[in-house]
């Protein structure tokens, strides 16, 4: 686990349709210490996914620095694991081979990476699905595999891009419970992008509110752990913090 720091990050691009330069990210600075869980929330178009794509190395940034453990980021790499909204599982690989993909890229022998994959699948209660193909699984199961695949590669930073936005509300809460539990067990450094305020507060140590390409506010979430919905759903502290963040987002 390593820290992530963004220093004066900026992104402008040329919009061919409008015929002008557009500023997606104005000036974002953010420190995520090793082992912290940070949620970034904000209305659509605030630039939260752009930040994640730059940190992941999928798109270049136009200004500022992105440092993982003090090292500048150049392109995508296994030090930053990504969980996608669309799951992005390889449809031609079994669940086991999807999860073992990262270790395979590192040159881990077959037997060993299967053992790693099985260990992580067990972590998410997916042992029974090891030999199935992604299209045979429900959306919720597929995203469990997506999370576990990123974790099994032991990234320094885990980047999650609205990972639970495309599953039903019931499943979403279960996945949030599970992610919370897994985070408490393994303590990875996480940047979690979402537009769902209660989700952001439930999961994070700190919530960053983004607006028009800038950080509007940062809200610490000192709610004790372990966190489960059964307890938090009626928790006053949780409600107050959620309302506070929601007010910020709506003012954004």
């Amino acid at each position: 686990m390593k820290s992530l720091s963004l220093k004066n990050l900026a992104k402008t691009y040329f919009d061919a349709y409008k015929g002008e330069h557009v500023t997606a990210i104005r000036d974002v600075s953010l420190e995520v210490p090793a082992g912290e869980f940070v949620s970034i929330v904000g209305p659509s178009g605030c630039g939260k996914s752009t930040i994640l794509n730059m940190v992941a190395g999928f798109i270049p940034h136009s200004g500022g620095d992105i440092l993982v453990g003090g090292e500048a980021v150049k392109g995508p790499g296994p030090d930053r694991g990504v969980v996608f909204q669309s799951f992005a599982l390889f449809p031609w690989k079994t669940v086991l081979d999807n999860v073992g993909f990262g270790p395979k890229m590192r040159g881990v022998p077959k037997a060993e990476r299967d053992a790693i994959a099985r260990e992580y699948l067990a972590l998410a209660g997916l042992s029974h699905a090891a030999d199935r193909y992604p299209n045979e699984l429900s959306g919720g199961m597929q995203q469990r595999v997506g999370v576990v695949r990123a974790l099994a590669n032991q990234p320094d930073v885990l980047l999650m891009d609205e990972p639970f936005a495309s599953v039903d509300a019931q499943t979403r809460m279960t996945l949030q419970d599970e992610l919370s539990r897994i985070w408490e067990e393994r303590r990875p450094t996480v940047v979690f992008i979402t537009h769902d305020v209660p989700e952001a507060v439930f999961l994070a140590n700190r919530v960053v509110v983004l607006s028009k390409g800038k950080v509007l506010a940062e809200v610490d979430v000192p709610i004790s752990r372990p966190r489960v919905w059964d307890r938090l759903v009626a928790d006053d502290q949780f409600k107050d913090l959620s309302n506070q963040v929601l007010a910020l987002v709506r003012s954004a």
């Binding site: 190395g57 999928f58 392109g75 990504v82 996608f84 992005a88 390889f90 993909f101 990262g102 590669n153």
Partner: peptide, 11 residues
């Protein structure tokens, strides 16, 4: 996203 996923897993 599949190519991105592979790249971020070290491919």
């Amino acid at each position: 996203t599949l190519r991105h996923a592979a790249a971020s897993l070290g491919a």
